[in-house]
């Protein structure tokens, strides 16, 4: 079992100029559980996720990781860059576009943070990276550059890179959206294993199957508003809000044949 964080989002507003991307969003993410954020594109789900490690600065409200406010020391007063880095060390993030560093091998990609952030020696970090890549089924790809890996393999390296830092919270920003359909499964399997190990996971996804079967709770956003938070069964089988119903109908129409 991993040590897992909880996240408390309270009354968060986020503006891009005059456009309000998040409107008074509140959401509790319990430790060790999987929370999926779903909704139409432009609904603010990625923005909300990116606020949780302060890659996106929220303007009002609070986001607390294990009770500790992220990004601010107090409302309106930014946290020091050093303290923010300290908090980010225990929050892993996986991106839609993988964002592996193309000038480093798979193993170096994973080792880099261990050396620069965790202060490990290079040999120690490389050994650790090999172990982590083994866990995601890439023990034979250590020396490959990202350009020599499939999308699914790249995303698994990216997950290993995040997990190697021993985070207590993992954020996934549409981790399978850039993948060819036949490569989605291998990435979802790695994520399921992580969930089974007790990691707190927040997943922005269009994979309704994953949300339905792996999530402990599903949050539906639309136009910057959090419309509902419920169990997967509640969201998918008994949606209480018409907007969810409409979204799921469009989704099913697009994915049926």
């Amino acid at each position: 079992m991993v040590q897992a964080s909880s996240v408390e989002v309270r009354n968060v507003d986020k503006f891009y100029g005059p456009f309000q991307a998040l409107k008074n969003v509140s959401l509790s993410i319990p430790a060790g559980k999987v929370t999926c954020l779903i909704g139409p594109s432009g609904s603010g789900k990625s923005t909300l996720l990116r606020c949780m490690n302060f890659l996106e600065e929220y303007d009002r409200g609070e986001i607390r990781i294990d009770g500790k406010l992220i990004g601010y020391d107090a409302p309106g007063r930014k946290m020091s860059a050093r303290n923010l880095r300290q908090m980010r060390r225990s929050i892993g993030m996986v991106f839609q576009q993988f964002n592996l560093w193309p000038h480093m091998t798979a193993q170096e990609n994973v080792a880099e943070g261990l050396v620069r952030v965790r202060g490990m020696s290079k040999p120690e970090a490389m050994a650790r990276a090999a172990t982590e890549l083994g866990k995601v089924g890439l023990a034979d790809k250590l020396g490959n550059y990202p350009s020599r890996l499939s999308g699914g393999q790249q995303q698994r390296v990216a997950i290993a890179r995040a997990v190697a830092m021993e985070p207590k919270l993992m954020l996934f920003d549409e981790p399978t959206s850039a993948l060819d359909p036949e490569l989605v499964g291998e990435v979802l399997n790695v994520m399921k294993a992580l969930a089974a190990a007790g990691m707190t996971m927040v997943v922005v996804t269009h994979e309704m199957g994953f949300a339905a079967h792996v999530a402990d709770q599903v949050a539906f956003l639309e136009k910057g508003e959090l419309v509902a938070v419920d169990s997967p069964a509640g969201i998918f089988h008994a949606p209480k809000d018409e907007r969810i119903w409409n979204f799921l109908r469009t989704y099913n129409e697009r994915n049926s044949f």
């Binding site: 490690n53 890659l55 860059a81 880095r85 300290q86 908090m87 980010r88 060390r89 929050i91 892993g92 993030m93 991106f95 576009q97 964002n99 592996l100 560093w101 880099e112 943070g113 620069r116 952030v117 990216a158 890179r161 995040a162 830092m165």
Partner: peptide
Amino acid sequence: PKGQAEAAVAIGMAPGD
């Protein structure tokens, strides 16, 4: 791509690194 630096920032890397 912006994500290159973001991936480093997200694991807590210092700006110099």
